[in-house]
Computed example of a mutant assay.
Amino acid sequence: MATFGYGRVSTDQQHTENQRIEIEQAGHQVDYWFEDRGVSGKVPAAQRPQFAAMLDKIRDGETLVVAKLDRLGRDAIDIMQVVRGLADRSIKTVVLALSGQDLTAPAGKLMLAMLSAVAEMERDLLVERTQAGLARAKAEGKRLGRPRKTSPQQHQEIRAALAAGATVAATARQYAVSRATIIAIRES
């Protein structure tokens, strides 16, 4: 049976070579290596091009080895789905950062469930902190969201130009904004 290795990095400037070396130094002879470069961890595993290709190639009963748990998925739910899908095919899933634990074995399933619960709690706490920060910023009178491309003075100029007969398209080109922005200013 073959051993598959998988690595992922978030930017094209990064390399997965360290992940591959780590897997081989742990004693795993990698027969097939798949890597996604420039793919954010926010992208679900099944939507990553090389991960999907690996899933198509790996056969029932083979082994998948990754350096870290977050290489498998974007969050606890995604990781659980990936591991369960692999377990359904009797594919052994080994994560080196978890002492080489096979996540499809009973002890690995328990560890994965505990880690998933902790990860979910951390995510919930992050959301709470973010919401508290946004509420504090609003209370302090800070404007949230994307910065405006035009100033209040430019709004007056745009309205005057449109009233004088300038077209929306020409005004948009002049101020380097979209037609929708000009229309929104006109109608405000």
Rank of each mutant, 00 (worst) to 15 (best):
H155A: 10
D12W: 05
V95T: 05
L64E: 01
L86T: 03
Q19A: 11
Y6R: 03
E122S: 05
K138H: 03
T104E: 01
K92I: 07
A53I: 05
L69Y: 03
K109N: 02
T16F: 04
S178G: 15
T167Y: 08
H28G: 03
G73M: 02
L64A: 06
V30M: 00
D31K: 00
H28L: 06
Q13N: 13
T16V: 15
E122N: 10
A170W: 07
M80C: 06
I58L: 03
Q131I: 12
R136F: 13
K68T: 11
A160C: 06
T167I: 09
H15W: 09
K149S: 07
S116V: 01
T130G: 08
E35P: 02
E157T: 14
L96R: 08
A172S: 12
A163K: 15
A117M: 01
R71L: 08
M54W: 06
Q14K: 06
R186D: 04
A135W: 05
L69E: 00
Q101A: 10
L162S: 14
A176H: 15
I182E: 03
G133Q: 07
A164T: 06
L96K: 09
Q50T: 04
G5A: 09
Q29K: 14
K142M: 11
E120N: 08
D31H: 00
M111S: 01
Q29E: 14
K142T: 06
A119G: 04
F4Q: 00
N18H: 14
P49C: 10
R159F: 10
D124V: 00
L125G: 06
S151I: 14
L126S: 11
Q153I: 14
H155G: 10
T11Y: 05
K42R: 10
R74K: 12
K149W: 03
L72E: 02
V43E: 09
G141Y: 08
E17T: 15
R37A: 13
V177S: 09
R123S: 08
R123P: 04
A180M: 13
F34T: 08
R129A: 11
Y6W: 09
V82E: 05
A169D: 09
I21T: 15
E122F: 11
R20T: 05
E120W: 09
L64M: 13
A87M: 08
V118L: 07
A26K: 07
R129W: 15
R74M: 10
D88R: 03
S10L: 10
I58W: 03
A166R: 03
I91L: 12
D75A: 09
A119F: 02
D56W: 06
A87T: 13
A172G: 12
T11P: 09
A46W: 06
D70H: 10
I91C: 07
L98A: 13
I79P: 00
S151F: 12
R8E: 04
R148L: 13
I77V: 15
Q13G: 11
G61D: 09
T93A: 08
H155L: 06
V94Y: 01
L112N: 00
G145C: 12
I183E: 15
D78Y: 03
F4G: 00
W33A: 00
R173M: 12
S40V: 10
A137I: 14
G41W: 03
R20A: 14
A180H: 13
V66K: 01
P147H: 11
K42G: 13
L64N: 01
D60Y: 07
A166K: 07
M114T: 07
